[in-house]
């Protein structure tokens, strides 16, 4: 009775997909047991060239990353600062498309079955592909979560449904300007983890107020039961360590992109690897 079997599979989700959905949860559960915090680096797919991205992802894992946020290049990254915009521009010089990004994830996944991958980007490439096709392909490629910066919860009803159907977590942002009522709303929709933007402004800015972050995280935890990652403004061991003391995960983007930017091709993997190892030690140092 293949028909009935397909129905059961569709209804309950395939076994493999169920496992996959748990990758994010598994990572956070394992870290929590060890009283450790997650390190989440961000890189843009295809920066500086498409050939190196999958190697770089493996390097990130080897150097102590728990989850990888992989940026989908976009021509108009409004919420990002100049560093991440330049990384998008470098990738787009090689015409890296959303389709290519998904292929990179699939290639990574064929070797690494455990490290969760979260895609991060802007709405239009997803709009151009279509929600349904995107979600299906992302699921097949082994994507665990997706954060689309310009899909706030108000505009995300269909989007979240579509991701849900394909066992992908919809990751949402919270910010210092988010009022408490919206925190509740986001908390209801968000899966995997929520990403707290630790300061007003764009990515790559540099004035992190730890007291503010701490107060806000306490406020968020009243409603948010899933892990909270903090990003924006984490630039060195000291900030990474401090944020690890407050949040469940530390997200580092612009600082890593800067390292990619200033490295020659031959030393890129080792330079980024060293940077990530340093951040890893700083984070573990705080929490052990």
């Amino acid at each position: 009775m293949p028909g009935f079997f397909d129905f059961i599979k569709d209804f309950f989700g395939e076994q493999s997909a169920t496992h996959k959905t748990k990758r994010l949860a598994n990572v956070f559960a394992a870290l929590s047991k060890q009283n450790r915090k997650a390190l989440i680096p961000f890189i843009t797919a295809g920066d500086p060239s498409p050939g190196i991205t999958v190697q770089l992802m493996h390097q990130l894992v080897k150097s102590g990353s728990d989850i990888i946020e992989l940026g989908i290049p976009f021509s108009d990254p409004m919420a990002d600062g100049p560093t991440i915009q330049r990384s998008s521009e470098r990738a787009l010089k090689h015409n890296v498309s959303l389709e290519n990004v998904l292929d990179m994830v699939a290639e990574f996944r064929s070797v690494d079955a455990n490290t969760p991958i979260v895609l991060m980007g802007y709405a239009n490439p997803v709009e151009a592909m279509g929600y349904e096709i995107f979600a299906e392909k992302a699921n097949q490629s082994g994507v665990d979560g997706v954060l689309i910066v310009d899909y706030p919860p108000e505009e995300s009803h269909q989007w979240v449904q579509c991701l849900d159907q394909h066992q992908i977590d919809a990751i949402f942002l919270l910010s210092p300007t988010t009022p408490q009522t919206r925190v509740e709303q986001v908390a209801k929709l968000a899966k995997g983890y929520v990403y707290y933007v630790s300061l007003k402004g764009v990515t790559g800015a540099s004035h992190l107020d730890l007291q503010d972050v701490s107060a806000m995280l306490n406020r968020l935890r009243e409603h948010v039961s899933i892990p909270i990652g903090v990003g924006f403004g984490i630039r060195d061991e000291a900030t990474a360590k401090a944020v690890a003391g407050l949040a469940d995960a530390v997200v580092v983007g612009s600082r890593i992109i800067e390292e990619i930017e200033k490295s020659s091709e031959s030393e890129l993997l080792s330079n980024v690897g060293n940077l990530v190892s340093t951040l890893r030690s700083a984070i573990d140092d705080k929490t052990q």
Binding site: A79, D150, Y151, P152, E154, E155, R182, V197, G201
Partner: peptide, 12 residues
């Protein structure tokens, strides 16, 4: 139309 912006701008 709609409001397709990053979270930081939603309340503004």
């Amino acid at each position: 139309g709609g409001i397709f912006v990053a979270e930081t701008l939603v309340s503004a």
